[in-house]
């Protein structure tokens, strides 16, 4: 069984009386690329900040590399690469000084890989951070996070501010990192095609709860969208569990069901549809169905 690199146990976070995280249980095994999805305000950044020890949970605990995230030692932090949302760096510093500081603090530093990234991204060492464009700041942040040879790479919306070409380069780099032994990546993103391309496990946060937590392929198998055509008006209510979404237009019903299996299929046929076809779903479709404000459902 793979070692668990990141674990959340009943994480609850309240902000000024508002529940942002509501009992999150999560396990990320070693070597996994975990894509964390959710609409704005779903709690992705809060969860990541708790994992990085920048925020304290109201209840529950988070373990990173086996240690409580609130009490990580310097050596344990050195095994984690982190890119915060908005590419937080120190604007008044020169790039060269920032790099020198990060290099000096890191227990491991892959100079060759870092040099490769700097030349790929064409990062100027003599400029101040505030003089860099958003894209360059993102690239610098990624390069600094990756140069420490992290066992765990945590990226909070890392491709924000990158153009298409830079995003593609980043994804290739992420794949390059994961191909090294035992590396794990946990990342959140709004660009679902990126997640679909590199993640092998996804979690979808809906209103502070982890509505989905399973391998990407299993998710695609388990969530099924069906177009049902009836001879007359479709039934208003179906006695079926795990309905994510149900829409009726004339004699046609569009039905999205989680945990799809042959029992549900057999049960659905008892309603006598004259036609039943499967509508192909991308991750984006599944995400939209699962995070629909009308019918959030656990998968």
């Amino acid at each position: 069984m793979a070692k668990i690199v990141v674990e959340a146990q009943g994480l609850v976070k309240f902000y000024e009386g508002r529940c942002v995280l509501d009992g999150i249980d999560l396990k990320v095994p070693q070597g996994c690329i975990y894509g964390l999805l959710g609409r704005n305000g779903a709690g992705k950044t809060t969860l990541i900040r708790i994992l990085m020890g920048q925020e304290t949970p109201t209840r529950g605990q988070a373990l990173v590399l086996g240690a409580n995230s609130q009490r990580l030692s310097a050596a344990q932090r050195g095994r984690v690469g982190y890119v915060a949302e908005g590419h937080q760096l120190v604007p008044s510093w020169r790039v060269g000084w920032l790099v020198s500081l990060c290099r000096g603090l890191a227990p491991r530093w892959d100079e060759r890989f870092f040099g490769h990234l700097v030349s790929t991204f064409k990062l100027p060492m003599d400029r101040k951070v505030k003089q860099l464009s958003t894209g360059m700041r993102a690239q610098l942040n990624l390069a600094l996070a990756m140069a420490v040879e992290p066992e765990l790479l945590v990226l909070d919306d890392p491709t924000l501010g990158l153009d298409t070409a830079a995003r593609r380069e980043f994804l290739e780099l992420a794949i390059d990192v994961i191909q090294r032994d035992g590396r794990t990546i946990l990342f959140s993103s709004h660009i679902l095609s990126d997640v679909e391309r590199i993640a092998d496990r996804v979690g979808i946060l809906v209103g502070g709860r982890l509505a989905v937590d399973c391998p990407l392929e299993a998710l695609k198998r388990r969530v099924r969208k069906l177009r049902l055509v009836f001879a007359e008006t479709p039934p208003q209510r179906l006695a079926l569990t795990d309905i994510v979404r149900q829409e009726v237009q004339g004699r046609e019903m569009l039905l999205t069901v989680a945990d799809w299996d042959e029992h549900k299929q057999a049960y659905l046929e008892t309603y006598g549809p004259i036609n039943c076809s499967v509508v192909p779903m991308s991750l984006e479709d599944i995400f939209l169905e699962c995070t629909s404000r009308r019918t959030p459902v656990a998968v």
Binding site: R77, G78, Y82, Q88, A106, V148
Partner: peptide, 17 residues
């Protein structure tokens, strides 16, 4: 003002240090 600790504390160090 510049979120110095917020950035540096994510590297291989601790806020105590």
């Amino acid at each position: 003002r510049w979120n110095l600790t917020a950035y540096v504390s994510t590297r291989a160090t601790t806020r105590g240090r």
